[in-house]
């Protein structure tokens, strides 16, 4: 399949995953999308509230919310991070790049790169060797995955050589196939999103 056909497959399948899909003009546009998504949502829930701290209004789950907005962007290069800083300048968004262990109570959004996207299942292949990337993609309420169109794969089996490549890059390796938000059906088989990790997953497709 050609790249365009693969993109069509992703478009057709994304809604049922569920994944929100955005085709960005360039990197700046991709980052702008993540910022917009963050600004549209309510402030993040605080899952580890401390006695005596002040918080915002209660969320729909009756949890306290945070007073600030946070975007975690582990794994972006310095240049990429600078673009993000530009886009958030003048907003109430606080950027996090590392030390995410200190933010386990939650943050709004994470922006991370995926190494590849499997079209057939809309699965992001994420190099998660960095602990910050793992935490970023789990603790954020909204996970935004950046994917280069040239990395689109057709089927899951086609991820084999990429897997082997990731395994051989260094000593230890941690790779995640991520397909949609964190989900469960453990209570009465009723589907629910965000049981531990993201409530939403967004994929932003970029040209090379």
């Amino acid at each position: 399949m050609t790249q365009d056909q693969l993109v069509e497959v992703v478009k057709a399948k994304a809604p049922s995953v569920p994944v929100s899909l955005y085709e960005a003009r360039d990197f700046a546009d991709a980052v702008q999308y993540a910022v917009d998504v963050t600004e549209k949502r309510r402030h993040c829930e605080m899952l580890l509230p401390k006695e005596g701290e002040t918080y915002g209004p209660l969320s729909e789950n009756s949890f306290p919310t945070m007073l600030d907005r946070f975007i975690a962007a582990p794994g972006l290069s310095d240049e990429e991070f600078a673009v993000l800083e530009g886009k958030t300048a003048g907003t109430d968004i606080i950027l996090l790049r590392s030390g995410l262990r200190g933010h386990m109570g939650g943050f709004n959004t994470s922006i991370t790169w995926a190494e590849a996207l499997v079209a057939d299942t809309v699965t992001c292949v994420v190099n998660s060797n960095s602990e910050e990337v793992r935490l970023g993609t789990m603790v954020a309420e909204v996970s935004v995955m950046l994917v280069r169109k040239s990395t689109l794969l057709n089927k899951l089996e086609d991820a084999n050589s990429l897997m082997l490549d990731l395994l051989n890059r260094g000593g230890a390796s941690y790779t995640a196939f991520i397909t949609g938000p964190s989900r469960t059906a453990d209570i009465e088989r009723v589907g629910a999103l965000g049981v531990h990790g993201p409530l939403e997953l967004h994929i932003v497709l970029l040209e090379d």
Binding site: T123, N129, S130, E131, A172, T175, F177, T179, P181
Partner: peptide, 16 residues
Amino acid sequence: AITSYITWIAGANECA
């Protein structure tokens, strides 16, 4: 078609 997460761990990874 696939679960939300397939996690592949080889070796003692980064852990602060």
